[in-house]
Structure formats: C-alpha cells, structure tokens
Amino acid sequence: MTTAAAGLRALLPAGDLTCVVSDALDRGGALSGAFRPVWSGASCAGEAVTVRTFGTDLSAVFDAIAEAAPGSVLVIDSHGITGTAFWGERTTRAALARRLAGVVIDGGCRDVTAVRRLGFPVFCTAITPNAGLAGGRGAVNVPIQAGGIPVSPGDVVVADENGVVIVPGHLAASTLERVRVLLAAEQQAFAQADRGAAAPPDGTEGEMV
C-alpha cells in the first residue's frame, strides 16, 4: 500500500472523510449518489484493483480477489447492470481471507445480511438476490468507469456513508497533504462555531458546508 493510501485510511475514524477528500479535489472526485453502503457505518480506503465484467459473468471478480494485495479496494464496473449481483457472501469471505479493505460495485450485491454480519465494507448501486454466473470472461486491472468517473488501477478509493471518492494515483500524495490542512482548518472552524461565531466559507483553507 502506498504511503498516501495508508495515510488516508488512518484518517477514516475521524468520520466523513470523503467530504474532506472531495474538497481537496476541488469539490470533485465523487461517484454518483447512487453508491450506498450495504451496512451503516461502513468505510474503507485503499488502492483500487479494477474489474470490468462481461454481461452477467462474474469470473473477473473472483480473479481480482485472487490477485489483489492486502488492503486493496476492488472497484467493479458492471456497466450499470442492477438486476444481477456481482458480490455476495462467498466473495465477501474470500475477500476477508485475502485481507482486502472493501469493494465498490457499479451494480448489484446480494446476501446483505451476511455481508453486514461479516462487517466487510461494500458499496453498491443496487441490491438483488439474482446471482451472476462464471463464464471465464471479463478483465482485471484495466481502466474502467464507475458512477461516471474514470478509475485506473492504483487510484486511491475512499468510501464512507457519504459516498465514494476516487483520488487519481498521481494526485494521491498531494491530496493527502491537502486533506490534513483542511481537517486542521475544519477543527478551528468547528471550535468557532461551538462558541457561536460561525461564518460561511470564504474560499480559503477549510472550505466546508
């Protein structure tokens, strides 16, 4: 895992990290609002291992789990298919065994009770009981699109209850530094607000809602 990915992961416990990361990316980088966590409180950060499925074939998902390094986040481009699940209990257990950090699916998930019980962070655009079938097709670690945003292998994924943000790999280190600056400014602004001295963002450090 890169230093930037590890640094962002370390900031997850503060909460709402995706909001600050988006601010650091000039208020961008977020996938569409259709991406939601399967269970409340889910969050993850790590380098992207990308998956491009073929139809309802989920073979590439299993290939990606087998190839991914510990701490990785799978990002699955299923071309917006929402009537078929590309993730479930079997893939969750396999991902946990590989010590992956989470998965983001532009498509469906199933076995949500098991996923919630196992505590694996899953973000998806649909829930459906229909499962895909393995047919040996699809691709791993290729450029994809997810939620209207291009994702490349090695980009940094940050996800929490606010949604999912993609940090391009070449911007990861500078984004981490920017996030740290924004968090410090945010804490100062919160302290002022608690004293009744709230002010709107002025376009300088600490931009926030």
Rank of each mutant, 00 (worst) to 15 (best):
V75T: 07
T50N: 13
D202Y: 12
A66L: 04
A42I: 12
F62A: 07
A60F: 05
R36H: 14
G148N: 06
G148A: 07
A69R: 14
A5V: 04
G41F: 15
T84S: 12
A4E: 06
V73N: 02
G147F: 05
W39K: 14
A5S: 10
T175I: 13
G102W: 01
L8T: 07
D160W: 00
G206Y: 01
C44K: 11
P168N: 07
A131T: 12
I105R: 04
S78E: 11
V151Q: 03
F190R: 12
A146G: 10
P168F: 05
D202S: 13
R27G: 14
M1L: 13
P168D: 08
N130I: 06
C109L: 01
G163R: 02
Q192W: 11
I81C: 11
R180V: 09
V104M: 05
M1W: 03
E177C: 06
G206L: 02
F120T: 10
V115A: 03
F86V: 06
R180M: 06
G15Y: 00
R36L: 10
F86A: 12
T175H: 08
R99G: 03
S72V: 03
A95W: 08
F120W: 06
A85H: 01
N141T: 14
L100C: 01
V151G: 00
V115H: 01
V157G: 04
H79M: 15
I127N: 09
W39P: 07
L8N: 07
L17E: 00
A30D: 05
G15Q: 00
S43T: 10
P13L: 00
E89F: 10
T50V: 14
C44H: 11
E177P: 09
L100F: 02
T82W: 09
A14D: 05
S72Q: 04
S59Y: 08
L118I: 10
L133F: 13
I127E: 10
D106C: 02
A24K: 08
S32M: 04
Q192P: 07
I65G: 02
L176N: 10
V158Q: 01
G41T: 14
D26W: 11
G132N: 05
D16S: 08
T175Q: 09
G206A: 11
F62I: 12
L118V: 06
A30Y: 02
V158E: 02
P121S: 05
G71Y: 04
L171C: 12
E47C: 13
I105W: 00
L183I: 00
G83H: 15
D194Q: 15
D160Q: 05
P13Q: 03
A30G: 06
G29L: 11
G71T: 11
L74E: 02
G107D: 07
L58D: 13
A172V: 00
D57Y: 03
